[in-house]
């Protein structure tokens, strides 16, 4: 399947939260007890049962009010930190660009949760599994739009081929910049290019997003250096033992069993 994309044009989002309900319904996720966090936001963060929510940020300056609303969910990175962190091979990437967790393989260790720069995956302590937005891969692979996109009434969410939609996003960005000079496209290159991308009206920080998201340095060090070097080192130790035995044998050190003397010639 070709690479897909969901574009969230925040200039068209009114924060109606229909996407959130649609997600819960399609994925049969139970409601949770909430209270208002700030502004009209009721969900503080992702949970094993909340895979998408709308964040609300109020920016008032120079007698201009900007009410920034953003549908948060897994970005489905091309270069996903969660996948890299997963020690159980439970996380994989599809050709269509979705990053999915195989619940059968997941052991709930939470390394993905710790390493995602956006804090997306969350471990259910009871089920001992990590959960996050699936991108509605079950729908996408059956030629349906993701449920959130299907539900969005304002046209803020759009689903399509990544190449086409990214081109459209750039065109739209140029229009949006007229009114919001700080507007930017988020997700084209970030994390290797994300399947869920945004047109943001302000800096990523204004929405609580990192400007330059990256897998933590520790993760890279761990997975790209310590892991291979460590494996080689343990293998090396084992090999050294084999050579040690061979060396001793060749030198005849294992002659008549004379405990205590062998080492000294």
């Amino acid at each position: 399947m070709t690479r897909k994309m969901v574009l969230a044009d925040t200039s068209k989002c009114t924060g109606c939260k229909a996407c959130t309900v649609a997600c819960k319904e399609w994925n049969q996720l139970p409601a949770e007890k909430t209270q208002l966090v700030r502004s009209y936001q009721s969900m503080r963060t992702f949970t094993p049962d909340t895979w998408t929510f709308v964040s609300f940020d109020e920016n008032y300056s120079g007698s201009q009010m900007h009410w920034l609303m953003r549908k948060a969910q897994c970005f489905h990175c091309a270069d996903p930190a969660c996948l890299k962190a997963c020690t159980s091979k439970a996380i994989s990437k599809t050709g269509s660009g979705y990053v999915v967790i195989d619940a059968d393989l997941c052991i709930g260790c939470g390394y993905c949760a710790e390493n995602c720069p956006f804090g997306v995956p969350k471990v259910d302590d009871q089920k001992k599994k990590a959960f996050k937005c699936t991108g509605c891969i079950d729908r996408v692979e059956n030629n349906l739009k993701p449920m959130c996109v299907q539900t969005c009434q304002t046209g803020a969410l759009e689903f399509g081929e990544r190449d086409e939609l990214m081109a459209k996003a750039k065109k739209r960005l140029a229009e949006v910049k007229g009114k919001y000079p700080k507007a930017l496209l988020y997700g084209e290159k970030e994390m290797g290019g994300m399947t869920h991308s945004y047109i943001l009206l302000d800096s990523p920080e204004a929405y609580g997003l990192p400007s330059n998201p990256a897998a933590p340095l520790a993760l890279t060090l761990w997975k790209d250096i310590i892991r291979p070097v460590g494996t080689v080192a343990v293998g090396g130790a084992a090999a050294a033992v084999v050579f040690g035995i061979l060396g001793n044998a060749l030198r005849g050190n294992y002659g008549p069993p004379e405990s205590g003397k062998g080492g000294k010639e």
Binding site: A85, Y111, E114, N115, P216, L217, A218, L219, L221, W222, I226, R227, V229, G230, T231, A233, V234, G236, A237, A238, A240, V241, G244, I245, N248, N253, Y254, G262, G263, K264
Partner: peptide
């Protein structure tokens, strides 16, 4: 973030060491 690589690193170091340790204490003729 840093705890994971360090935990892993320590494991590798100690595992490599224990392999040598076992060899010397059980197998090495000297």
């Amino acid at each position: 973030d840093w705890a994971y690589p360090l935990h892993d690193l320590a494991m590798f170091v100690m595992t490599a060491a224990v392999i040598g340790h076992i060899y010397l204490s059980l197998i090495h003729p000297g």
